[in-house]
Nucleic acid binder design. Structure first.
Lengths: 168, 168
DNA sequence: GGCTATCAGTTTGTGTGCAAACTATTTGCA
DNA sequence: TGCAAATAGTTTGCACACAAACTGATAGCC
């Protein structure tokens, strides 16, 4: 956080910009930081996740853990592979994360008797109960962002297009 | 990568959904994973950064390091504080990252003689030369995403609105 | 039946991110 | 002047995120 304004006084003198190229073949702003969509995406993602932090902290979970809980609240025994597909997260990321959720008492982890390779990740009573508190989160975020449902919907569709395009 | 499809066979039987609430006060989809903007943002951010990976890897830098280079290509001696403001990244994140960029030979780190607290992060000759390769990155990404400049522009404006709203 | 390829998770190593504690300067003010 | 508060970076601890190597279990296939 502590978002500081975009422009600051130059650190030293040296105001001359790097220009070692022929200058004719040089689209000057192709590399401009403030028009990189990847940069805007990264900052927006981190900024929004930061909004969740104070709301999730009293629940004792992080934002990635919150996403896992959202998935489990929709369907409760899920394998690591299924969670990996739903959240588009690496199994190597989920594995320790799920252990932390288990340590927090929100899920259980046990092997599927029908396929000992698979792990059945299941909500505990506490995990299910946590949903009550979670219901207050999205409204709080939407109020904080102060954007209309239309705006958020349009953004969501844009993001979905990007995700689909980047997928394969 | 290895983005797997959204739906997979249910792990076990247990198809019955958790429904322990009065059901009247229950907006069923408020917590639906696939309509959380925060989730779409996180996935889109990770997905797009993943597109950069194979392009940046031959340059020997990561995506956050690439963003630092973009900032330095616009203005070369920059302090950690200035970089922190421009990239909206914690100094505690930048500090080791800049040491890695220095170890890669792309920047130098030395104290500002006029204020020994400040660190002057400056491009090396190699760091400046890297810009030539970087010029090929944005077109490659845009082609990969297969989105029009209009679409990307609209997305960028939406993201900028979100960033501003989330800012504090 | 037994062997091999595949599959599901886990582990390891590296690199972010962020909060909090810490160090070294510099500023500002009594 | 002298010293407390503010400032700029660094360090530490924890939690992702991902690639690659590894382990155990299952599925095919002869």
């Amino acid at each position: 956080m502590t978002v500081t304004p975009r422009t600051g006084a130059a650190m030293s003198s040296a105001p001359k910009e790097a220009a070692a190229e022929p200058a004719a073949t040089e689209p000057e702003d192709l590399l401009a930081l403030d028009r990189q969509v990847c940069f805007a995406l990264a900052v927006a993602s981190r900024s929004v996740i930061a909004l969740y932090r104070p709301l999730l902290e009293p629940m004792g979970i992080t934002h990635p853990q919150y996403l896992v809980m959202l998935a489990l609240w929709e369907q409760s025994p899920l394998s690591v592979k299924q969670l990996s597909g739903l959240l588009q997260l690496d199994p190597g990321t989920l594995s320790p994360l799920l252990k932390r959720l288990e340590a927090s008492g929100y899920v259980t982890r046990r092997r599927d008797p029908r396929d000992e390779r698979a792990l059945a990740v299941e909500l505990t009573k506490e995990g299910l109960a946590l949903r009550e508190q979670a219901l207050r989160v999205p409204p709080a975020i939407m109020e904080r962002l102060d954007m209309t449902a239309d705006e958020l919907g349009a953004l969501h569709r844009s993001l979905t297009r990007v995700i689909a395009a980047a997928a394969p």
